[in-house]
Design a binder for these strands. Structure first.
Length: 609
DNA sequence: ACGATCACG
DNA sequence: ACGTACGTGATCGTG
């Protein structure tokens, strides 16, 4: 047995690292001890839980004074027995550890989830801001420094330094560091001691602030989304390999064109800007740092293409601009999507993207590794990579204009409420309110952009750029919107006034406190609308599971649930899911649009049979 | 590490 | 007094 001591918040704590079964004599007593909650953590070879070479190395259990660091290779059975005892656990980022324990030790995450707390969830409820946004952040280190001990070690950073000293990198160290390295064992133990202490510092606060109901909901939701992550999505590997080859070839072809104009690296904005200038193009827009801007919005007009990449015939296309656009897009899709899919698949050709159930400041969910919420929607080729399980079809149901409906309900704007009650398309209704019943297609688009701009708190210049109209027209559009829907602006001003004279925050209908940046109070409307829409989708996930339809779910995508169902009943299943998603929010109908997508996800975006 | 860019809702 | 587009994740170049 290796025994280490460490002072945390003025108290001497003990880290125990058993080396043989006899060392576990006191462990049994520890696990059966009086603590109501034990902290739990794991150390593994990396984040890629489902890749064939992934291994669980350590499992740590601890309370405020004592941590047991157990080798998974020696003590798997002891760990299983300990976790099977009916007691509660707290982890920081519970989902990761639960998925690891499920994958490597066969501990069902559903059962563990019902008696687990997550300090990250609690911290997010108290302050969702990252360090970059001026908050404490949501990592164990900064939270411990604030709530437990200002001198708490940065275990992640400390380990990275130890990795380097031993000749490993940040990426290889987790797998390569000797399992009995003293710093590794010490920090593994300290992580659970800190988590346990953090829990007892912030859990009472969450209760005192009245956030217990949200905490309960988020902990439950997190388990359901972990189930989706464990399920994953099936990848059509031969298709993705072909797609990658096609995209790489396409990128190479256009890189050769760009090289003819002296651009050896299409990703170098400086090179592209210089070559375009040399060809006689004038670049007027600049980035915040003052460099010439050569993004898609600048290059498309130079290439005589519209936003749908169709020929405009407004000017002779600049061949360099077009080559840069096409090679960059093809390369990005090849690397960020096709190659990443191949790299991240498990032994059964499934992808298990990380679902951050409670991620953004607004509590919006995120999906990473790979970013499945951000696949191209204007082109079916990337989404075509994901296929339903054998005999099943991909299905989906999305909320119809959920943010505008939420805005109507929260603001109580009579015109917008009436339009929804009459069953109208909201953007049609906005266009009618602005331009009368005979509005044109461009006018509808402008109305839609104006509505979004209003939610985001945007000005006329941004609206003009976004909608492709003059600033003068954008100003008129904003005035027409304000006249037709006066309740929206009034609602926004109310939120800002309240924040100006009270706490710099907005409280959502679910009781979530969203901090505002003092110089961006105007964002209050967007925050509460975005957050409420998120809460509606989160509730839908819970409701779909409660209705016994959870086995079908694949992924949440902000206002949509992606799922699969046996081909013969796919229509029935997604109609039922859509019905479960529907609700009434403060008297306003939240409607859904169910759809059978097809054998692949791409079939909803124009993929051929 | 950070800015620029681009993918989504 | 005025005006501010919101939220993510991933990659590449640059220093």
């Amino acid at each position: 047995m290796i025994t280490l001591t460490h002072v945390v918040a003025g108290e001497t704590c003990t880290v125990r690292f058993p080396e043989r079964p006899a060392d576990l004599y006191d462990f049994e007593g520890f696990v059966s001890g009086p603590d109501k909650v034990l902290a739990l953590d794991t150390e593994t070879t990396g984040l890629d839980i489902y890749s064939p070479g992934h291994r669980l190395r350590l499992v740590q259990l601890g309370n405020a004074r004592e941590a047991w660091v157990l080798r998974a290779d020696l003590f798997a059975e002891h760990i299983r027995r300990a976790l099977a005892k009916p007691r509660h656990y707290v982890a920081h980022n519970w989902t990761y550890d639960a998925l690891v324990l499920n994958q490597h030790l066969g501990i069902p995450l559903e059962e563990l989830g019902a008696r687990s707390y997550d300090t990250r969830v609690l911290a997010h409820l108290l302050d969702p801001r990252t360090t970059a946004e001026g908050g404490i952040g949501l990592s164990l280190k900064p939270l411990s420094a604030v709530y437990v001990d200002p001198d708490a070690p940065d275990t992640q950073e400390g380990l990275t330094a130890e990795f380097r000293r031993l000749g490993f990198t940040k990426a290889t160290g987790w797998a390569g560091i000797p399992i009995d390295n003293e710093l590794y064992v010490r920090y593994a133990g300290l992580d659970v001691i800190l988590t346990h202490r953090l829990f007892h510092e912030i859990a009472p606060t969450v209760r005192d602030v009245g956030l217990d109901h949200l905490s309960k909901f988020e902990h439950h939701l997190q388990v359901l989304l972990a189930i989706l992550q464990r399920r994953g999505m099936r990848l059509d590997v031969p298709y993705v390999e072909r797609l990658k080859d096609d995209l790489v070839e396409e990128a190479e072809r256009f890189k050769l064109v760009a090289a003819r104009y002296g651009v050896t690296n299409v990703n170098s904005t400086a090179q592209v800007a210089e070559a375009l200038s040399a060809m006689g193009e004038t670049l007027t827009e600049t980035t915040p740092s003052g460099a010439a801007k050569v993004d898609k919005n600048v290059l498309l007009p130079l290439a005589d293409l519209n936003l749908q990449w169709e020929r405009v015939e407004a000017r002779p296309p600049n061949p360099l601009a077009e080559a840069v656009l096409r090679s960059k897009r093809a390369e990005k899709w090849a690397v960020t999507y096709a190659q990443a899919f191949l790299d991240l698949r498990d032994a059964n050709d499934r992808l298990h993207p990380s679902i951050g159930a409670l991620q953004a400041r607004t509590a919006r969910m995120s999906v990473s590794r790979p970013p499945l919420q951000q696949l191209p929607s204007s082109d079916w080729r990337v989404r075509r990579a994901f296929i339903a399980d054998p005999g099943q079809l991909i299905v989906a149901a999305d909320y119809k204009q959920v943010e505008m409906r939420v805005l109507a309900a929260l603001s109580g704007d009579p015109a917008m409420l009436k339009a929804i009650a009459d069953g109208l398309d909201i953007h049609d209704a906005v266009a009618t309110g602005m331009f009368g019943p005979g509005f044109s297609k461009p006018q509808r688009k402008l109305a839609k952009n104006t509505g979004f701009g209003e939610v985001f708190g945007g000005g006329a210049i941004t609206l003009a750029r976004q909608a492709g109209v003059s600033v003068e027209v954008a100003k008129q559009a904003k005035a027409l919107f304000a006249k037709g829907f006066p309740g929206i602006k009034r609602y926004g001003r109310r939120l800002v006034n309240r924040a100006e004279y009270g706490r710099k925050e907005v409280i959502t209908p679910s009781g979530r406190h969203l901090p505002l940046d003092r110089d961006r109070l105007y964002a209050a409307t967007n925050y509460v609308v975005q957050s409420t829409a998120r809460d509606l989708l989160a509730q839908a996930v819970v409701d779909v599971f409660d209705a016994g339809l959870g086995d079908h779910l694949l992924l949440p995508i902000h206002d949509e649930l992606l799922a699969q169902a046996p081909a013969a009943e796919a229509g029935d299943v997604i109609r039922e899911i859509g019905r479960v998603m529907e609700s009434t929010f403060q008297g306003v109908a939240i409607a859904s649009d169910p759809e059978v997508v097809g054998p692949s996800w791409g079939h909803g975006y124009g993929a051929p049979e």
